[in-house]
Design a protein around this nucleic acid. Structure first.
Lengths: 154, 154
DNA sequence: ATTATATAGTTAGTTATCAAACTAATTATT
DNA sequence: AATAATTAGTTTGATAACTAACTATATAAT
C-alpha cells in the first residue's frame, strides 16, 4: 500500500493547486472587473514588463494557451482600444500586437486595483514560504510542458 | 523597488500554479476520456475513498465548487448510471448521492487509466519535492478560502 | 514550376464553470 | 398560527477556455 499512499498524496497536491488557482483567480478577477479580466490584464502586464510587438502565436505560447483563446483575448483588448493589431509587412499571415497609451493606463489601474490584495497577503501569510516553493513549481511546470509535447513544447 | 519585486514574484507563483493546473488537468482528462471528466472522476473517487451518501451541498463544499456546478456534475453521473440520487425521508428539500456498482467500475477504470501518469511522474520527477510543498499549498488554500468568506468558508 | 507541407490566424461549436434569480421546504420570530 | 428568514437544490444566461476544421500565405520538395 506504500505506492498507493504516495499516489494519493500526489493527487492531493494537484487538487490543492486547482483550488488555489480557482480562488486566487476569482479574487483577482473581482478586483480587476469590470475593465479587464485576468487574461486580458496578463497580456497588458506582459507588454509593459517585458515588451510588446509580439505575435498572437508567441503570446499563446507564453501564456500556455491555445491560439484561438489568444485570438479572442486580443479581440477584446482591441475592441477596448488597449492594443493595436499591426499586420506584418513581410509576411501577410502575421500580425504584431502593440499596447496603446490607454492600454497602459488600464494596466496601471489593474496594478493599483490588485496591489492591495497582494499587500494583504504579504501581511497575513508567510510570503517567504510562497517564494520558497516557486522553484519546484517552475520545474514541475516545465516538466509537464515537455511531457505534453516532447519535441517543442506547444 | 523592493516591494514591487516581491509582488512580481508572488504574481509569478500564482501564474505557475495556473499553468500547472491547466497542464495537469488536461493530461488527466485525456487519460480518463471518454467515460468521465476530471470533476466526475473526483466525485466518484471521493465516494470510494471517503464514503458516499453526501448531499450535493456537502459535495460542493468539499470540492470548493458552487452548488449549480455540483448539480450539473451529479446530473451527468446520474445520466451515466454511476450514481443514484436518493431523496431524504425527513427533509424533502434534501437528496443524498450514492455510487452505483457501475460507478465503482468506472472509478476503478479511471484509476487504472491514470495510474501510469502518476507512475511516470514518480519516475521522472522528484516527487519528494512535490510532497514537500504540499503543506504550504494547503495553508495557502485554507487562507484564500477564509479570506473569501471569513465567516464559514463557502 | 507545380505540388505538397507547414505556419499564422480565424471561425464554429462544445464544455465547464460561475453568478443571479428562482422554487420549494424548513425553521425562527412575532 | 401567521409571517419572515433561511436552506437545499435547480434553472437560466453569461463567459472563457478548449478542439476541430477552415482560409490564406509562405516554404520545401519533386
Amino acid at each position: 500500500m506504500r505506492k498507493t499512499h504516495q499516489t494519493d498524496a500526489v493527487f492531493r497536491v494537484f487538487n490543492e493547486l486547482g483550488i488555489i488557482n480557482q480562488l486566487s483567480n476569482a479574487e483577482f478577477q473581482r478586483a480587476l472587473a469590470p475593465d479587464l479580466n485576468t487574461s486580458e490584464f496578463g497580456v497588458l502586464n506582459h507588454f509593459v514588463r517585458v515588451g510588446d510587438g509580439k505575435t498572437p502565436s508567441e503570446l499563446a505560447r507564453i501564456f500556455q494557451m491555445t491560439k484561438p483563446s489568444m485570438t479572442a483575448i486580443i479581440g477584446k483588448l482591441e475592441q477596448k482600444g488597449f492594443v493595436n493589431v499591426i499586420p506584418s509587412e513581410t509576411d501577410r499571415r502575421r500580425k504584431t500586437i502593440e499596447i496603446t497609451a490607454s492600454g497602459r493606463t488600464a494596466r496601471d489601474a489593474g496594478i493599483a486595483a490588485t496591489a492591495p490584495l497582494i499587500e494583504t497577503l504579504q501581511a497575513d501569510f508567510p510570503v517567504d514560504d510562497l517564494l520558497a516553493i516557486q522553484p519546484v513549481l517552475e520545474r514541475l511546470r516545465i516538466y509537464l510542458d515537455q511531457r505534453r509535447n516532447p519535441i517543442d513544447g506547444l
